[in-house]
């Protein structure tokens, strides 16, 4: 249990997927203008990253390693991620058409970004077992959602502030993101995972 907790802290805070590994920056800047949409996007991405990472673990263990097909890893993972995204959309539509429509209007249901592939490749490098892989992917995406929510909250406040004209818009967003990254550097040294 201690290992799992350390894995979660390491993946979510110390090696945060956005602020330490610089993955998923497109959605980090693009979907963080409102807190609620950022949280929704975070949850969608968390689901996709976790499901696709589990599938990637299985493909790696039962196909790529036994048949020595490591050179096909990136291509295979991209295919698996695309399938996982389609699966997510199909399942939500089947579970509740009303939910599917509501989310479809306000949130991007197709949530692929480089963080999804990045986490899958990190799993391979970490040589985890199935549950560790799932926990690592889940914790990484929790870290992504956390940063999205914090940044969205900050941007909502900045929108109400008087920002000098030269810094208004994206520049103050980048300055804020860099300060947030510095704050997250405070977690380094807590865990080596």
């Amino acid at each position: 249990m201690k290992d799992i907790v350390l894995l979660i802290v390491g993946a979510a805070l110390v090696n945060n997927v956005v602020l330490a590994r610089f993955l998923g920056l497109c959605s980090f800047m693009g979907v963080t203008t409102k807190l609620d949409t950022a949280l929704g996007m975070g949850m969608a991405t968390t689901f996709v990253i976790t499901v696709s990472s589990m599938a990637d673990w299985a493909i790696e263990k039962f196909l790529l390693v036994p048949y020595d097909l490591g050179y096909l890893r990136t291509v295979t993972f991209i295919l698996v991620i695309a399938a996982a995204v389609q699966f997510t959309e199909m399942v939500i539509r089947k579970v509740s058409p009303a939910l599917f429509q509501t989310l479809g209007i306000y949130l991007p249901l197709i949530t692929t970004n480089c963080a999804v592939l990045g986490v899958a490749l990190l799993l391979v490098a970490g040589q985890y077992n199935f549950v560790e892989s799932a926990v690592f992917a889940f914790a990484s995406s929790l870290g992504y959602s956390l940063v999205m929510a914090i940044f969205a909250g900050l941007r909502e406040r900045i929108a109400l502030a008087e920002v000098p004209m030269l810094f208004a818009g994206p520049p103050i967003g980048f300055v804020t993101a860099s300060l947030l990254a510095l704050a997250f550097m405070g977690f380094s040294g807590m865990s080596t995972n």
């Binding site: 609620d36 976790t50 509501t102 549950v131």
Partner: peptide, 21 residues
Amino acid sequence: LLRASLVAYGLPLLGMMGAAI
């Protein structure tokens, strides 16, 4: 919207991770 996201993504994730751990 937040509740809809929680229901669509949160509950299946919770079930999955709870069972895995």
